[in-house]
């Protein structure tokens, strides 16, 4: 029996472009050095599945303004702290006196609001189908408990329309394991019927290598394929309770993806009855439009049209300490991973 490594190592077929959609896959693939062991015929492309990367810079501007002008306590995942806005990041807002708390869960933000009823607490809700139900849970509980000082600044996105937008960017997709936990695999079956190949997989070295071996093996027939390589966690039907909850609290809207532009129906906003927990409604702020560097190639990188070092800004004006574009912003972005894990060791 051949191991996953042997199958990958011996691949000598036509060039295959495989897009890992999920930022955590990107992170693990770089951390493990998986790109470095691939034969020339296999190429990994990092897709748009890092919510921090695709969050438009105007979102940070909104959060900074809530913190500094509305004096709200901002609760956020650590991922967002260093992301630059048009003028400043949350870290620089904090140094100017803003109260910015790093939390592990949206539910912690709700608890903080309940323990400090005199302060307005705003949770920065970014993320895809994996993360959104936690925010919805917090909002539903806040409504049940009549909490008046808790709200959410939402930039939540959903993946299905993004897959549509990415069609043709790769020969096969590594679908995001933990998004699939929630959504199930029906969409991937449908995409497969439309000619889009993909594999759902987990995040350990073994799981990622097995998925790549599966891409290699299943590509041989030349027919589109879908395989769930993470069935102990991902069920075909997903997590129905989570999907119901999201549908109860939020509804689809158009959303801007930093680097990709506007994708219709790919965002989520609060349904009317939960509007009191929408920070934009509560504080009367309108969605801000940030300014991106026009020379940035992030959009093309996210669509797999070029690699980070091909960008004129990469490693020069755009570094993890001073990111200019979406993919350099988060540790899970393609450019940041390329920069930090050094695509070439001996430069």
């Amino acid at each position: 029996m051949k191991s996953a490594r042997e199958i990958i190592d011996s691949y000598d077929g036509r060039p295959l472009r495989i897009m890992e959609v999920c930022g955590t896959h990107t992170h693990e693939i770089f951390r493990l050095g998986i790109r470095r062991i691939l034969p020339p015929g296999l190429k990994l492309i990092s897709g748009p599945g890092c919510p921090v990367c695709v969050t438009p810079c105007g979102y940070i501007d909104e959060a900074v303004s809530l913190a500094l002008e509305k004096n709200a306590v901002i609760c956020t995942f650590g991922d967002l702290i260093r992301v630059p806005g048009s003028n400043m990041s949350l870290a620089s807002a904090r140094s100017r006196g803003a109260e910015i708390r790093t939390v592990y869960s949206p539910l912690d933000a709700l608890e903080l609001a309940q323990s400090d009823p005199d302060r307005q607490v705003v949770f920065l809700s970014v993320g895809f189908e994996t993360t959104t139900p936690g925010s919805c849970l917090a909002v539903r509980k806040a409504a049940e408990r009549g909490v008046k000082n808790f709200s959410i600044l939402s930039a939540n996105k959903t993946m299905p329309r993004a897959y549509e937008a990415l069609k043709g960017s790769a020969d096969a997709f590594l679908y995001p394991g933990h998004v699939s936990v929630m959504t199930g695999t029906a969409l991937y079956e449908r995409l497969c019927a439309e000619g889009v190949s993909g594999i759902v997989t987990g995040f350990t070295a073994d799981e990622i290598l097995t998925a790549l071996a599966a891409v290699v093996e299943l590509s041989r027939s030349g027919k589109p394929f879908f395989r769930n390589c993470y069935p102990r966690v991902v069920r075909p039907e997903g997590n129905p309770a989570a999907v119901r909850l999201m549908d109860q609290v939020m509804e689809p809207c158009d959303a801007e993806w930093r680097g990709l532009g506007m994708i219709p129906g790919s965002g989520l906003k609060f349904r009317d009855r939960f509007a009191p927990f929408d920070a934009r409604v509560k504080f009367g702020i309108s969605e801000l439009r940030g300014r991106d560097n026009p020379a940035c190639s992030c959009g093309r990188i996210l669509r797999g049209e070029c690699m980070p070092p091909d960008c004129p800004l990469f490693g020069k004006v755009c570094t993890p300490a001073h990111p200019a574009g979406a993919c350099m912003v988060s540790g899970e972005g393609a450019c940041s991973a390329f920069y930090q894990y050094g695509e070439k060791i001996d430069e």
Binding site: M1, K2, S3, A4, F77, Y104, S105, P106, L107, D108, G127, T130, T131, P133, G134, L137, H178, V181, M182, G202, T204, D206, E207, T210, A213, A214, C229, Y230, P231, R232, V233, V234, R235, N239, A242
Partner: peptide
């Protein structure tokens, strides 16, 4: 499986067994 303070899925069996079976 836990993500951001929420248990999102029950895990059936160990990872090693699953990848071995897939291989």
């Amino acid at each position: 499986m836990v993500h951001a303070g929420v248990a999102i899925a029950k895990i059936e069996g160990p990872s090693g067994e699953e990848t071995a079976k897939l291989m």
